[in-house]
């Protein structure tokens, strides 16, 4: 009994077909996810949505306009 695979003969669908089904479902789920991630990126997080944050902008944010070289 122990040496017999529990997977064999316990379902009517052949294992190979079932594995293909599993692979198809996971591939579909991954595709949906990739599309949603891409949509999120382009809608909210692409380069146009990012504020500039170089040394001057960071200085202005952290230590106020006095820290901005151009404010002299």
């Amino acid at each position: 009994m122990e040496r017999q695979s529990v997977a064999s003969g316990s379902h009517t669908i052949p294992p190979a077909a079932r594995r293909r089904g599993t692979a198809r479902e996971i591939a579909l789920a991954l595709t949906v996810k990739a599309c949603l991630l891409a949509a999120l990126y382009f809608l909210f997080f692409g380069p146009t949505h990012r504020p500039p944050a170089g040394p001057a902008a960071t200085a202005a944010a952290l230590i106020g306009p006095a820290g901005h070289k151009d404010q002299r």
């Binding site: 789920a29 991630l37 990012r50 504020p51 500039p52 944050a53 040394p55 902008a57 960071t58």
Partner: peptide
């Protein structure tokens, strides 16, 4: 299902936490 769900945090570093990122 889980892979790349963390990448959205990295999106946020650039957009919502720009001064932190710099």
């Amino acid at each position: 299902m889980g892979v790349a769900t963390g990448i959205t945090m990295e999106f946020q570093f650039g957009t919502n936490w720009a001064y932190y990122s710099h």
